[in-house]
Simulated scan of single mutants.
Amino acid sequence: MVSRRILLVALASGLAGAPLAAFAEGDDHPKPAPRKPAPRPRPAAAQGAPAPRSTVNEYPKPAETHAPEIIINPDEALGRLKHGNAIFARGGASMALPSWARINELSNGQKPFAIIVGCSDSRVPPELVFDCTLGELFVVRVAGSTVSREGLGSILYAVEHLGAPLIVVLGHTKCGAVGAAVDVVTKHSHLHGALFDMALPIIPAVLEAQAKSPADLQDAAIRQNVRITAERLKSADHILADRLASGRLKIVSACYSLSTAQVEFNI
Rank of each mutant, 00 (worst) to 15 (best):
G91E: 06
L81Q: 00
A63C: 13
A77D: 01
A89V: 13
F88A: 01
L81V: 11
A86F: 02
R102N: 01
E69T: 10
G84A: 11
I87A: 04
T55E: 12
T55L: 03
I70F: 08
M95V: 15
P62V: 11
A89R: 01
A86Y: 01
E58M: 08
P74G: 09
N104F: 00
K61L: 15
P60Q: 05
D75P: 09
L78S: 00
A86G: 11
W100Q: 00
R80T: 12
W100S: 00
N85A: 15
N57G: 15
E69G: 04
G79E: 15
I87Q: 02
A89D: 02
A63T: 02
I70S: 13
P62H: 05
E64A: 15
T65G: 02
P68I: 10
A96D: 09
A77C: 14
A63V: 13
P98L: 08
R80E: 15
P74W: 07
N104D: 10
P74C: 09
F88V: 07
I72R: 00
K61M: 14
N57E: 14
H83E: 15
G91L: 06
E76F: 04
A101D: 07
H83G: 05
I72H: 02
E76L: 08
A93C: 07
N73Q: 13
R90I: 01
L78Y: 00
G84C: 14
G92E: 09
I103Q: 02
P98D: 10
I103G: 01
H66W: 11
G91R: 10
I103T: 03
T55K: 13
I70T: 13
L81K: 05
T65S: 13
W100Y: 07
A96K: 06
A63L: 04
G91C: 06
A63E: 15
P74E: 02
W100T: 00
A63D: 11
A96I: 11
M95A: 05
A67W: 03
P60H: 01
E58W: 03
L81F: 10
T55S: 14
A101P: 01
E76I: 06
T65C: 14
I70Y: 06
G84D: 06
Y59M: 07
K61W: 06
S94Q: 06
P98H: 05
P98K: 04
D75F: 07
A93S: 12
A63R: 06
N73L: 07
Y59E: 08
I72L: 15
N57V: 15
I71H: 10
P74K: 00
E76G: 11
L81D: 04
V56S: 12
A93E: 08
A96E: 04
F88T: 00
N104K: 11
P68V: 02
T65I: 15
R102K: 13
L78E: 00
M95K: 04
P60K: 08
E64W: 10
L78G: 02
R90M: 07
